[in-house]
Every structure is written in structure tokens, then in C-alpha cells.
Simulated scan of single mutants.
Amino acid sequence: MENTFATKQSAAPARSRVIGVVLWVLQALLAVQFVIGGLSKLLGDQLIVGMFDAIGAGDWLRYLVGTLEIAGAVGLLIPVLSGLAALGLVALMVGATITNVFVLEADATMPAVFLVVAALIAWGRWSRVAELAVRLRR
């Protein structure tokens, strides 16, 4: 009985390490995607400009979304901010998914995938969000 308990105890830190590595890989990959997307919006890629024209909100929304995407990408790479950044990106991707489906009538697969990945990161880094909230209350 003791041997099984010891095995479970030693497996927990190993599993935790694996989850931590997987989260960092997801964070890095998502950060790259959001930097690329954010820069394309800020630098005025014609395809992106046309998409935001079709939305009808003007350039201000394109600049805002591009800035939020880059800020979220940077936040994903800062340990204390990673969970909060992921939550922000979840909100951004909810908006993008809804906009693609109901306004642009376009395929929403990519924003939905990014939403799910950001949600997984936010869930995996929830303790960091809670820790940040405690720090800010002081």
C-alpha cells in the first residue's frame, strides 16, 4: 500500500511539470499567432483592412484589436500576467468568432480554435490570475 502511495506522490510533480511545459508551448505558439495577427492589423494589410471595412466600424477598431492582440501576446509570455492575458484573449476571440459568424458570414474556425487554446491557458494558469488579484488588493 505504501509503495502505491509513494508512486502516486512522485507522479504528481512529474505530471505537473508536463502540464507546465505544455502550457508554455501553447502560450508561445498563441503569442506568435497574435503578434502576426496584431501586426497585420496595425500595418494595414489590405485583406485585413477590407475585412474591417466590411464590419463597418472603421480603422479605430482595427487599431484597437491589433493593439489588444499584441498586448495579449506579450502578456502570455510574462508569467504573472499569462492567465489574465489569456482571459483577455478569450474575450477578444469571442468577439471575433461572433463577428465572423453573424457580421461577415465567414468561417469562424480560426478564432474559435484560438478561443479554445486561450481558454485552456486561462484555466491552466488560473492560480496566477488569483495570485495577481491578491497582489492588486494590497
Rank of each mutant, 00 (worst) to 15 (best):
Ala14Cys: 00
Val101Leu: 15
Ile36Thr: 12
Ser16Ile: 00
Ala85Asn: 04
Val21Thr: 09
Asn3Trp: 00
Gly75Glu: 09
Leu64Tyr: 09
Phe52Ser: 07
Ala28Glu: 06
Tyr63Ala: 11
Leu87Gln: 01
Arg137Glu: 14
Ala31Phe: 06
Val22Thr: 11
Thr97Ser: 13
Leu115Met: 14
Ala108Lys: 06
Glu69Thr: 12
Leu30Arg: 04
Leu42Cys: 02
Arg15Phe: 02
Thr7Val: 05
Lys41Ser: 04
Phe52Lys: 10
Asp107Gly: 12
Tyr63His: 12
Leu84Asp: 05
Leu61Tyr: 14
Val129Asp: 03
Ala96Leu: 06
Val134Arg: 15
Glu105Leu: 04
Ser40Ala: 07
Phe114Ser: 10
Leu43Glu: 12
Ser16Ala: 10
Ile70Asp: 09
Ala86Ser: 05
Ala96Asp: 11
Ala54Glu: 10
Ala106Asn: 09
Gly44Tyr: 12
Gly58Asp: 13
Leu115Gly: 10
Ala133Asp: 12
Gln46Ile: 13
Val90Ala: 03
Phe52Trp: 10
Leu81Trp: 10
Phe114Lys: 09
Val103His: 02
Arg125Met: 02
Leu26Trp: 05
Met51His: 01
Ala91Arg: 01
Ile98Trp: 11
Asn3Pro: 00
Glu105Trp: 00
Leu76Asn: 06
Leu47Pro: 00
Thr99Asp: 05
Pro111Arg: 11
Leu87Asn: 02
Thr7Asp: 02
Trp123Asp: 02
Leu84Gly: 07
Val134Lys: 15
Val134Leu: 15
Gly95Trp: 07
Val65Arg: 05
Asn100Ser: 13
Pro79Ser: 07
Leu29Phe: 15
Ala12Cys: 00
Val90Arg: 00
Ala130His: 12
Leu136Ser: 10
Ala112Gly: 04
Leu29Glu: 11
Ala133Ile: 14
Leu81Thr: 04
Gly20Thr: 06
Leu29Asp: 07
Gln27Ile: 00
Arg135Ala: 13
Leu23Gly: 01
Val21Tyr: 03
Val94Asn: 05
Met51Ile: 08
Leu39Val: 14
Ile36Leu: 14
Leu30Ser: 09
Glu131Met: 09
Ile36Gly: 02
Gly50Cys: 06
Arg137His: 12
Leu104Pro: 00
Asn100Glu: 11
Gly58Met: 14
Thr4Pro: 00
Ala6Ile: 05
Gly95Glu: 09
Gly124Val: 06
Ala118His: 03
Met51Lys: 09
Gly37Asp: 13
Gly56Ala: 09
Phe102Thr: 15
Ala85Asp: 06
Ala96Cys: 10
Val103Thr: 11
Gly58Lys: 14
Gln33Lys: 11
Asp45Asn: 14
Ala12Gly: 00
Arg125Asp: 01
Ile48Ala: 04
Leu30Ala: 07
Arg135Asp: 13
Met1Pro: 03
Ala91Gly: 14
Leu104His: 00
Ile70Met: 14
Leu104Thr: 06
Ala112Thr: 13
Trp126Arg: 08
Leu68Trp: 09
Gly83Arg: 06
Val18Gly: 01
Ile78His: 05
Gly50Leu: 05
Arg128Pro: 10
Leu84Asn: 03
Gly37Ser: 15
Ala119Asp: 01
Val116Met: 10
Val116Thr: 11
Asp45Phe: 11
Phe34Gln: 03
